[in-house]
Design a protein around this nucleic acid. Structure first.
Lengths: 172, 172
DNA sequence: CTTGGAAAGTCAACATCGCTGACATAATAT
DNA sequence: ATATTATGTCAGCGATGTTGACTTTCCAAG
């Protein structure tokens, strides 16, 4: 019953609140589900040819975006345990895709960088993903893209939103 | 080099194409990643109290949205193998959350329905998710929501977009 | 200079949830 | 009658997440 409240109340609010009915919200949930599935399918298909999975892709993505970031920062961005990340990171370092340099100020820290080989895989993976994103952006148009970004940002957990906003976006 | 093409070209296109730079696209990728993580975290937290996982949630969601749908349809919507779905579906039926009625026209088919118990869990899970979605919608505003939905829809694989559009959205 | 704590790495065990392959059953369709 | 379809099931495997325990390294504070 408690979830009916906001739904039943929506129609009273006039046009500006109509989109907050439960069915509209459920439709948004489905949109996220289907879109995210498509969004990950392209890199997944590529990764089948390697011995890597989605976890490797995510690590590679953020190392590329913030060269030199520490393991701890990467842990926060990915939201997994160090044991889980370690497994992934070790194979990437062993295979020569990622370089872990001992920190110069704090020697306990490791600063992570993509090697040339790592950067190549990153481009292959992200190009697949960017290609779908680009097509969707073109189909939807600039103002839709702005709205898309606004809603996604509002949906994030506050702590990660900080990290998100701290990243380059080429809009400046 | 091939992924530079569209990026380098973006600046030539004037204001309307500026959002297609590689960095803008990567930022969109990150937005999807962080938002999706938040989006799934609420129901995941609830599911820890039960013996169910994300897969159960997804099945419950679609059975609720299309009561009476067949196993095959659900398979398509979820994009998993029947072996994977069967494991999930069996536990839901055994625990009395889902009812599988033999089809009346084709007796090979099973039509799936939520029981009262299943509907209760569905509401608990989806309320958590809708609550976050509602807050994001409110924060971003109606026109942002329209754009959000447009981009996500454009991102889907065509076959699933059909299913997506066939679902109730309360907009009619 | 010793010591406490932080950063990182590692080992073991386990759960979830994908997958493939093989096979059984029941019922429709030809 | 036979082929095909929808479903269910068993076995095994792989990727990725988890907790818990422990070690090593190293900065920093007493």
């Amino acid at each position: 019953m408690s979830d009916i409240g906001s739904s039943g109340g929506a129609k009273q609010g006039g046009e500006s609140l109509l989109f907050l009915t439960d069915e509209q919200l459920r439709k948004g949930i489905e949109a996220m589900f289907f879109a995210y599935r498509a969004f990950t399918s392209d890199p997944d298909r590529i990764l089948e040819n390697y011995e890597y999975g989605r976890a490797h892709h995510r690590a590679i993505h953020f190392i590329n975006r913030q060269p030199g970031l520490t393991v701890n920062t990467l842990l926060t961005l990915l939201g997994v345990t160090k044991q889980s990340l370690n497994r992934v990171l070790r194979s990437l370092v062993e295979d020569g895709l990622v370089e872990a340099r001992v920190g110069k100020t704090d020697k306990r820290e490791r600063n992570l960088y993509l090697t040339q080989k790592g950067a190549m895989l990153e481009r292959e993976l992200s190009e697949a993903q960017r290609s779908r994103m680009r097509a969707a952006y073109r189909a939807a148009g600039p103002s839709a893209v702005a709205g898309f970004r606004q809603v996604l940002e509002a949906m994030m957990d506050p702590e990660l939103r900080k990290f998100y906003n701290a990243m380059k976006d080429g809009a400046a």
